[in-house]
Design a protein around this nucleic acid. Sequence first.
DNA 1: GGAACTCGCCAC
DNA 2: AAACGTGGCGAGTTCC
Length: 473
Amino acid sequence: MTQITATTKEAYKLIHKGALAFGRAERQGFRIDVEYCQKKKEHLSRKIAHLQKKLEETKLIKTWKESIKGQINTDSNHQLAHVLYNVMKITPPKTTKSGKGATDEDALTQINLPGIQLILQIRKLRKMRDTYLDAFLREQTGGYIHPFFNLHTVRTYRSSSDRPNFQNIPKRDKEAMQICRRALFPRPGHQLLAVDFSGIEVMIAACYHKDPTMLSYLEDPHSDMHGDMAHQIFVLDEYDAEIEKAGGLKKIPEFKVLRNATKNGFVFPQFYGDYYGNNAVSLACEWGKLSKGKWKKGQGLPMPDGHLSDHLIKNGIKSFDQFTEHMKKIEEDFWDRRFAVYGQWRKDWVKEYQKKGFFDMHTGFRCKGVMSRNEVCNYPIQGAAFHCLLWSFIEVDRIMQEEQWDSRLIGQIHDEMLLDVHPDELEHVTRTIQKVTCQDLSKAWPWIITPLEITNSLSPVDCSWGNMEDIDL
DNA sequence: GGAACTCGCCAC
DNA sequence: AAACGTGGCGAGTTCC
């Protein structure tokens, strides 16, 4: 097991002060609409029962009943895998870690039998009801939940949260987000304010490797790393005039999708230690909507003048295998040329760890024990990035008490802090946090050589966490 | 009857 | 040579 220790007095203090600041947020709690949770739970239960009834009428369930002794359970993935892969003899689209046929969303979508969609819909609704609304009701007392924030559980010296977990409430799926976050409110007459660091892990990584190309990307607000990578991966040279005219890749909807795919299917996975093989599947199949075989014309995502397959074929990439080869070259170029200093840092950092048996974070924590290459490269970044939030949280908490704010810190999600603010204090609170996060922190920790930026989002007075809107200050 | 496991899925 | 980092948690299942 990896052991982590504070090697500096400052690191030791950070944890102690952090525990106290989190304790105050825990005691404060997050106001919850109990009646809404109960009503929504019943509503979801009715919906689930309805879908269950429809599921009962499918051929899949008929086969299921014939092949299972005793009571069938449509919530059992074990039984589902048996029916699909043993009885119906379908080839599993993918396997689980332990080598059995997978029944996750990705696998089931590829099978796409009548009834499969119903199972997936039921899963989503059950997740909302059982993992979130149920937990809120179970944990609430006096109309408030008091999520815990732990500083002693995570290998990288991040935090975790439980009872209930405040750090995994739905956000990306808009329907699930609304249903779950609609349960949580500021105190009467107050607003919710969320402040998060923009790209903090990339910023902190650069404080270790100091790659000049990366530093200029981070310092120049007009540069666009993901856009440049999308341009290279999808060979967009022929559109240069068009992109120039639009004022950037992001301004053309078709290319914005490719940029997003690049960011989430190549750049970030590469930073975490992924390789071109997985990237190729993610980019071509999941994002690009292309097949794993030879490509035909008119397939995949739309382009300004046709489809993705047309464009790639024209540029000599005619199949998934050729795209994989292409991605191999992109990866080499990424680490050996574009970010050569970053690439060398990773090699040196691992070598140094192998020699010493430990490494130190910028924030004064030492990690020792047996770790993989990816762990050795990721931990110091993930840990120190969270410590930026922790330091800021402690400082905001201190000022909040000293100035006797009515506003309160109520939680934190790794790179974001959440406050329940009085409207009259909003401007002062946001200014204070801006100063703490973007100025004071960098002064306190001179190893931070990248600009730190935050974004704010706000709910209207008396509106729920499902109503956050970005604000400029 | 509870501990420990697998699987799936939510967040950063 | 290998191949995505960190968590919590619910349900089902298996082990003791």
